[in-house]
Design a protein around this nucleic acid. Structure first.
Length: 807
RNA sequence: GGUCGCUUAACUCAGUUGGUAGAGUACUUGCUCGACACGCAAGAAGUCAUUGGUUCGAGUCCAAUAGCGACCACCA
């Protein structure tokens, strides 16, 4: 065996084996129950980041676990065309080559888009494969492939025919940089510092952060309860520069406390839109879809961008005495989630999905078999669905799915196709009668970071219900976002990101996977730093070395079978411990609690198996049997560990132990051995060893021990490193549960130690007595608990007596 | 403004139904005793954010406060 685990060689070998033999290709198998995970398709615009590594590790852990439990496991991979994001990236690329997107015809531009699709789909696949995912590559889907396109068109026509898709003039969010409408979910709100201007509109002062919009003002609103303006209601205000008169109207929309309490109503805010619709006013538009000022009213500002015009108008207002005051003001501004430029609200002709009706069954789904883990996200889910507004699905882009209506050039929101992903990937609609679709759909668990609940999860749920009549999955598992060492989001601008591919390159995929998961709960945002990779690497090294030890020992002979009658204490102890860890790991995996399970497995292997059991094997009286036990525990451990560490477990199982072609399809371990009494007894032996280790140091000249486990004498001497005289001890200085120990030591040192121990016991006795003398406790606590305390007190008093006597 | 989280050892995190606070790292001390220094053994280290309540008993349940964070929302 190699000195250390050669992950590079092992990863290459096993990955090639898995992929070349299509080992994880799922098939319709009536003898097995299916378990399906449709993987969230990553955007083809970026390299995989550590968040992908986390989510795919979780998904792969689930699917490997289910596969070993005997399910026909399908994990279906794919990639998303990410319409806007890709278009922006391609345009940037072209710019670097000196090509301006606007100089290209749509057809020419699409050539570049298509090239990008091909190149980066392959790239993403390669990167995903490095994580060691056990997905079915033969079913890899792309959101622009024929199958998805068919599903998109079918869904569009179905919804259109039902009147659930309509075209209308509505107030929408428009990104002037991306040049397209975006949906509500695509608008982020950021706190930004702005200037709040107070501007004289003739007889009234209005407050606004958008001086450039004054040219569009069609009314001024004041609160009906605002006494300051009561006599002005019904009068006219005057727009500066252009001297157009507009009415002053009393309406609740104006907040008395904000600014001057008077606000302009224009064509360029949602608040205004609601107002002008209510009063049947049509404001004049002065900002174009290109984000530039236009029209007669704006005069010399025509052609300026909004940002330019804001400055210029403010300056002119000041110069001409219309500006009453200006002050800093922080408020939330809607920005495009892609480019983070301020969103312009526009009334424009777009396509929408009517949501109220579709949302209803999605809300009810929580009572009809949909489970969201952790449960706290149910509230977020419901809140959004209960307040949902129609979904703007048209985008003014060149790439993406075309709205399938003759003469319409708009494309569809990229999430329109994502929403169909759980069933379009399985052949819906054309292969809905196929065994594949019938077998694998509905899928089982959807795993994703919580940030994507609105964009995606909710839309998949209502789409599944609407188009297939079934929930697309029964469980949604939401996990956190990976943060850096001090809790910040990992981002390019902060430079605090960790590249999973670099970690894999340096430490291996198992390290990447294990270190992301171990010791965390999925509902929290895990913090990640490279130190965690080092720890995981050390653990794998520990496993590797234990196997090396086994190999050396087994060369001298090993029994094929475990014979329970021939086992020693330690053998039975570790088998019973194994039994417990199998139960616990299984239970935790069922609850998706992989992080805590990983912690327990690590502790089991390192502390119980290596620190204790492995050491006993060295002095075992029946080595051939003990090694059979060793192998049994090791193999079961490998199986339990496989979902998180597929490579090293596969390498040991197949290449070192030569137990088979792959561990991935071996049955998940079940409890077999349970020796409760022997386990308890060996725990006591350990206690004796630990007692001896603790006490052996300071000036101990001789040790005598009296106990009933003569067979373990050699073991205790070996493990404690103490030379022991085994004889009856009349006056013990220390007693454990199963032994009397007499230490011949330096008196002063011993007395000090004993006194410390007595002080500790006294504290505990005090606590016990207090509890037991409290009638509240003895009357109200469960009888068993009271009995426990009584026994504990007796034992403590006995120990104290012995200690005091020895002194 | 609304909603929801989080706060446990120096650090990263566990802590099932309330019953004397746990792990790993780091730290201190000692280690070449059949694999492992990416290691072995021993040790020290915590007012469980604060306050109040419920209870015989609270890290755990309830309320308030503080700090941090996330999401939602048209205060111009």
């Amino acid at each position: 065996m190699d000195k250390n685990f050669d992950f590079k060689r092992a990863e290459a070998e096993h990955n090639a084996k898995w992929i070349d033999n299509a080992m994880f290709r799922a098939v319709v198998n009536p003898d097995k129950k299916p378990y399906t995970i449709i993987m969230p398709p990553p955007n083809i615009t970026a390299r995989l980041h550590v968040g992908h590594a986390l989510t795919y590790t979780i998904q792969d852990a689930i699917i490997r676990f289910k596969r070993m439990q005997g399910f026909e496991a399908l994990m279906l991979p794919g990639a998303d065309h990410a319409a806007i994001a890709t278009e922006v990236k391609v345009a940037e690329e072209l710019k670097k080559q000196g090509i301006d997107k606007r100089d290209l015809s749509p057809e020419e531009f699409m050539v570049h888009i298509n090239k990008w699709y091909v190149h980066y789909t392959a790239e993403i696949k390669t990167q995903m494969k490095r994580l060691g995912l056990s997905c079915d590559w033969s079913r890899f889907g792309f959101t622009m492939d024929d199958q998805t396109t068919l599903a998109v068109n079918t869904v569009f026509h179905n919804l259109y025919a039902k009147g659930l898709i309509y075209q209308g003039e509505r107030m929408i969010n428009y990104c002037t940089t991306c040049g397209t409408a975006v949906s509500d979910a695509e608008v982020e709100h950021e706190a930004r510092s702005q200037t709040l201007f107070t501007i004289r509109f003739g007889n009234i002062d209005i407050a606004t952060v958008r001086p450039e919009a004054i040219f569009s003002a069609a009314a001024v609103a004041v609160n009906p309860r605002d006494k300051r303006y009561a006599k002005l209601v019904g009068k006219m205000a005057t727009i500066p520069f252009i001297n157009i008169e507009i009415p002053i109207i009393a309406d609740e929309t104006a907040e008395m406390k904000f600014g001057t309490g008077a606000v302009q109503m224009t064509a360029h805010s949602t608040q205004s839109h609601e107002f002008t619709t209510k009063y049947n006013i049509t404001p004049v538009k002065v900002i174009g879809m290109d984000g530039k000022m236009f029209g007669e009213r704006v005069g010399e500002f025509a052609g300026m961008t909004v940002a330019e015009a804001r400055k210029a108008v403010a300056k002119k207002l000041k110069d001409e005495g219309f500006l009453v005051s200006e002050k800093k003001h922080t408020s939330n501004v809607g920005v495009c989630y892609r480019c983070h430029v301020e969103i312009e609200p526009f009334v424009s002709l777009q396509w929408f999905v009517k949501m109220k009706e579709l949302a209803k069954p999605a809300i009810e789904a929580l009572n009809n078999g949909l489970m969201i883990v952790p449960k706290k996200f149910e509230k977020v889910y419901l809140h959004w669905l209960n307040n949902i507004r129609d979904w703007c699905i048209s985008r003014q882009l060149l790439s993406g799915h075309k709205i399938p209506i003759d003469g319409v050039d708009d494309k569809l929101d990229t999430w329109f196709s994502s929403a169909l992903w759980p069933f379009s990937t399985l052949g819906w609609p054309d292969k809905t009668d196929s065994p594949d679709f019938k077998y694998f759909y509905p899928t089982d668990t959807l795993v994703t970071a919580y940030e994507i609940i609105f964009f995606w999860v909710i839309r998949m749920v209502f789409s599944g219900i609407e188009h297939t009549g079934q929930l697309p999955f029964h469980t949604v598992l939401m996990h956190g976002l990976v943060r850096d060492k001090i809790g910040r989001k990992m981002s390019k601008s902060l430079g605090n990101g960790i590249d999973p591919l670099e970690v894999i390159e340096e430490y291996g995929a198992d390290v990447m996977r294990f270190s992301l998961i171990v010791g965390t709960k999925l509902d929290r945002d895990p913090r990640y730093s490279i130190e965690k990779a080092v720890l995981a690497r050390n653990f794998i090294n520990k496993i590797w070395n234990a196997v090396k030890f086994f190999n050396v020992m087994a060369a001298d002979g090993i029994d094929d079978e475990i014979n329970p009658k021939a086992l020693c204490h330690a053998d039975k102890w570790i088998l019973t411990k194994l039994n417990a860890i199998i139960k616990s790991t299984t239970k935790k995996h069922e609850k998706f609690d992989f992080g805590v399970a990983a912690n327990e497995l690590q502790s089991f292997f390192w502390n119980d198996f290596c620190d204790w059991y492995l050491e006993t094997v060295k002095v075992s009286g029946n080595k051939r049997q003990s090694l059979a036990v060793f192998r049994h525990v090791l193999v079961n451990f490998l199986k339990l560990m496989n979902p998180l560490m597929p490579y090293v477990t596969e390498e040991i199982y197949c290449n070192v132990l030569k137990m088979g072609e792959t561990i991935a399809f071996e049955a998940w371990p079940v409890s077999e051995f349970n020796f409760a009494r022997e386990k308890r007894e060996f725990d006591s032996v350990i206690e004796v060893v630990e007692t001896l280790r603790t006490n052996k140091s300071d000036d101990v000249t001789a040790v005598a021990v009296d106990w009933a486990f003569a067979a373990e004498n050699g073991l205790v001497e070996k493990l404690s490193g103490v030379k022991i005289e085994w004889r009856p001890v009349a006056e013990p200085t220390i007693t454990t549960k199963i032994s009397k120990i007499h230490l011949v030591v330096d008196e002063d040192a011993r007395c000090a130690k004993v006194e410390k121990q007595i002080a500790h016991i006294d504290m505990e006795i005090e606590r016990c007595r207090k509890m037991l003398s409290n009638p509240g406790f003895t009357n109200k606590a469960p009888r068993q608990k009271v009995k426990e305390e009584e026994d504990k007190l007796l034992e403590l008093e006995r120990q104290r007596e012995i200690l005091a006597g020895g002194k």
